[in-house]
Write a protein that binds this DNA or RNA. Structure first.
Lengths: 110, 110
DNA sequence: ATAATATGTTCTATATAAAGAATAGTTTAA
DNA sequence: TTAAACTATTCTTTATATAGAACATATTAT
């Protein structure tokens, strides 16, 4: 939950709730309810303020991890994509291809 | 601006505004005002709905790029490749597709 | 001790995000 | 050729995010 992450990082930084609220220029009452997960749907503006003060990415606040690391793509795939891009394959075309491929797979399954 | 990015990706996907709104389960009136930057502070819930339907990361919607420093391939392509991998497309199949595509392009050029 | 300051929590008030019309303009179909 | 189905935009309304106060405890200082 996002509130837990904010609170955790805040304490790690040695900030009090009031202190962070003041520095980030948000209401401490609201920050309080966010940290305790009473309210869980802050705006991007709020998140930007907080993430700036805590010096952490919004993405980290949202997911608790740096997203790129989860599934690495090997170099061979990277090169294939570069090749695709330079040979003029559009994303939409590629998407169509994927869709067609799925359809083909499902068909042979039955 | 975030609205421009949403609109751009939406069109790239071939979705109409109404269509995306319905699929993402948000009000089209609101999506409309977001895309035109009339309102610019959506909640993370809203962004999650949209990013899910557009199959792109929230981070991309926010910043228009992967925060990774030397990333030559853009986010959308990365996601497409991941999609391809998870739906069982092999590198060989992809190479075949590229070859076929080049052939097709050359053919229509003449 | 007690005043003063800092802590986080509950209130209440207000601004605005977001929904749900109704609207007008296009495209498709009968 | 007009009616149906879609397009996106403006309204109006409702829900809720956020602010700002008042509050209760806990620290710190005098």
């Amino acid at each position: 939950m996002i509130g837990d992450r904010i609170q955790h990082i805040r304490k790690d930084r040695g900030f009090s709730l009031s202190e962070l609220a003041e520095r980030a220029n948000v209401a401490k009452s609201y920050l309080s309810s966010i940290e305790r997960n009473i309210q869980q749907n802050p705006s991007i503006l709020f998140l930007e303020k907080i993430s700036n003060e805590l010096d952490v990415s919004i993405n980290y606040l949202l997911h608790g991890e740096q997203q790129d690391i989860n599934e690495p793509i090997d170099d061979e795939w990277i090169n294939l994509v570069k090749e695709a891009m330079s040979s003029g394959v559009s994303k939409e075309q590629f998407r169509d291809y994927l869709e067609f491929n799925r359809w083909k797979l499902n068909k042979t399954d039955e």
